[in-house]
Design a protein around this nucleic acid. Structure first.
Lengths: 115, 115
DNA sequence: TCGTAATGCAGGCAAATACCTGCGCTTTAC
DNA sequence: GTAAAGCGCAGGTATTTGCCTGCATTACGA
């Protein structure tokens, strides 16, 4: 019996989400889905000014990051937004800096008051 | 008199921040600065496993995104974290999806209760 | 003052990224 | 059944990215 070694470097979830958010086109897609959920690929392509296949790649990256889920309805592919990874990233990652921001604001406030 | 045309495409602030956060090395740098603010370039390089010049580039990107501010003290360059852009991005961008997340949770809850 | 420490600047290179074109497959509509 | 709609898959290419090496510059300290 032979076991294939996994060469690919594991990208953790947070990295997938951050990298997915790094592109303006993908943020635009999330915006559109936020406005109206469950759109087809064709609908999402209309306001993108690029080939359908390019948009497919972007949506694939969003799906890999678990920011978008898909379902097939006949020959159509429906796309649904999933806000949970964004929330997770915020909770585990941004919150710490937010707390620091607030403490810096507090410090600034007391500094000004204690003048 | 000749006027040079600006070719460069203007990158808005949000895009700079998102792109800056897309790299794990840069997130690690922010983490380190969050643990202890005001570190020098040399200090930040120590636990990075890459050439100093590479780290400088990463810090330059963080600085361009306004996530890090710098100050010179003699021959040293001090780095300070700035959590405001992160907060701005959260406010203008993530919050909307957060609200949707909560409404989805609410909907799920009422669906389960109304069963 | 002279060596060294801390950083800046420029160029190069491989991999990743973001596009594209071309073609095939499945489903719908007439 | 046949044409078209909707989408998937496989390359191909130009740009960007992330890292490097080499050398220059500035500040400290004996």
């Amino acid at each position: 019996m032979q076991v294939k070694t996994c060469i690919m470097v594991r990208m953790d979830d947070a990295d997938l989400v951050f990298k997915a958010l790094a592109d303006p086109t993908r943020r635009h897609l999330l915006d559109r889905l936020s406005a109206r959920n469950g759109q087809t690929l064709g609908e999402l392509c209309k306001d993108l000014d690029m080939a359908r296949q390019s948009a497919t790649q972007h949506l694939g990256i969003l799906e890999a990051a678990n920011l978008v889920s898909t379902a097939k309805r006949g020959r159509e592919k429906l796309h649904f937004i999933n806000p949970v990874p964004l929330h997770d990233v915020y909770e585990r990652w941004v919150r710490k800096f937010e707390e620091q921001r607030l403490s810096l604001l507090h410090q600034l406030k007391t500094d000004l008051e204690g003048k």
